[in-house]
Design a protein around this nucleic acid. Structure first.
Lengths: 202, 202
DNA sequence: GTCTATACCATGATAGAC
DNA sequence: GTCTATCATGGTATAGAC
C-alpha cells in the first residue's frame, strides 16, 4: 500500500519538473532531490525514465478528463463550457508566463526527440479538440465544429508561447478578451434552434 | 580564409540540426556526422557548444532581418507585407509540419533550460513583432499596432504547434485563409487617410 | 586548421544489503 | 520497499601530433 503512494509521489514530482524544465533536461537526481526519494528507489517502481514519462502522461490525461467533466457540470450551455476552456489561460497565467503550456511544450519536445510516448502526449491535445468540437456541434455548428475547435486550440497555444517569451500576463488577458469576443461572434452564426442538448460525455 | 568557411559550415549544420532535433538533444557527434568535420575541430572554431548556439542565433537573426527587408521591397503596401508574413506558414509548411516553428520551438526550449542565450533567441520574436507593429502603424492603426502584431504572431505560433502535433498541412492552409480574412477586416478600421508612408527601416 | 586520442563528468541503470 | 554503492554509457571538452 505504501508502494502505491510512493509511486504516485514520484509521478507527481516528475510531472512538475518535466513541466518546468522539460523532460530531457530533468534528471532522476533532480526528481530525487525535489522529494525524499533515493535514486535507486525509482527502479523499484519504474524500470526506466521513459516509463516515468509514460506514467506522467497518463496522469495528465486523467486530470484533463476530470477537468473537462467538471466544465461540463459547471456550464449549462456549450458557450459557458467553451468559456471555461478559454479561461484556463487566466487561471494558470502565472505558470504559463514562466513555463508555457504544459501540453504544447511537452508535445513539441517529444516530437523533436521522436520519443516513443509522442502519440500519447498528442492525445492530450486530442482530448481538448474532441471536447471543443462536441461543444461547437451542440451549438449547431456541426459543419465546421472541428475547424472551430482547432482554431481555439491554436490561439491558446500561440498565446502561451508568446506570453512565456515576452513574460507578459497583460497580453494573456487581452487575448482572452479577444477570444471571448470571437466566441460571441460565432454564436450569431448558429443554424437556428439546432441546439438539442446531448449530454453524452466525450 | 578556409577557416571562415568551416566555421560557417559548422553553424549551418548546427542550425539545421538544432531545428530538427532541438538544441540539447543534438550532440556534437551528430553535427560532426552530418558534415565532414571531426569532433575535435569544433573547438578550434568555438570554445563550447553554447558558443555554437550563440552563432546559430546570430545567423538566424541576420537571415530574419534580410527576409524582412525583402518583404519590404516586394510589398508596396503594408498589407502586402503583412501578407508576406502570414504566408511563410505556407512556404515552410513541410518543415513546420515536421519540426514546428524554428523561432517558437527554440525559444520554448531555451526558456526551459534557462539558457544564457534565451534573450537573444527571444530577439527573433522581437524582430517580427517590431516589424509587424510598424506595418500596422503605417496602416493608421497606431493606437493598437502592437496588439495587432502580437495577435498575428500568436496565431502563427499556435498554427505551427498544432500542425506539428497533428501532422496536418490542410489545417495550416485553412488557418492562413482565416488570417487573411482577419487582415482584410482590420483594414476596414483604419482611421481614414493617416497613411503617410514612412519607409525608414525597422 | 584539422585530426586522433583521451580525460572527465553527468546521468541512466543495476546489484545487493537492510 | 528503500537504501547505498557501483557500473556503463555517452557527451562535452582538452591535449597534442600532423
Amino acid at each position: 500500500m505504501k508502494g502505491k503512494t510512493t509511486r504516485k509521489h514520484i509521478v507527481e514530482l516528475a510531472d512538475r519538473l518535466f513541466y518546468q524544465r522539460g523532460y530531457e533536461h530533468t534528471s532522476l537526481a533532480d526528481i530525487a532531490d525535489s522529494g525524499q526519494i533515493s535514486k535507486g528507489n525509482f527502479y523499484y517502481h519504474f524500470k526506466s525514465k521513459d516509463e516515468i514519462l509514460a506514467a506522467v502522461i497518463q496522469l495528465r490525461l486523467e486530470n484533463t478528463r476530470n477537468m473537462l467533466l467538471k466544465w461540463e457540470d459547471a456550464g449549462e450551455q456549450p458557450e459557458d463550457r467553451i468559456m471555461s476552456f478559454i479561461h484556463i489561460l487566466i487561471a494558470n497565467q502565472a505558470d504559463i508566463k514562466m513555463y508555457g503550456c504544459p501540453v504544447g511544450t511537452l508535445c513539441t519536445e517529444l516530437a523533436k526527440l521522436n520519443h516513443a510516448s509522442k502519440a500519447e502526449a498528442n492525445e492530450l491535445f486530442s482530448l481538448f479538440r474532441t471536447w471543443l468540437r462536441w461543444q461547437f456541434a451542440l451549438l449547431g455548428r456541426n459543419a465546421d465544429a472541428d475547424e472551430l475547435a482547432m482554431h481555439l486550440l491554436a490561439r491558446s497555444q500561440g498565446v502561451s508561447t508568446l506570453a512565456q517569451a515576452f513574460q507578459d500576463e497583460r497580453f494573456i488577458k487581452h487575448e482572452v478578451e479577444q477570444m471571448c469576443d470571437w466566441l460571441s461572434t460565432q454564436l450569431k452564426y448558429v443554424s437556428g434552434g439546432a441546439n438539442e442538448c446531448d449530454n453524452s460525455g466525450i
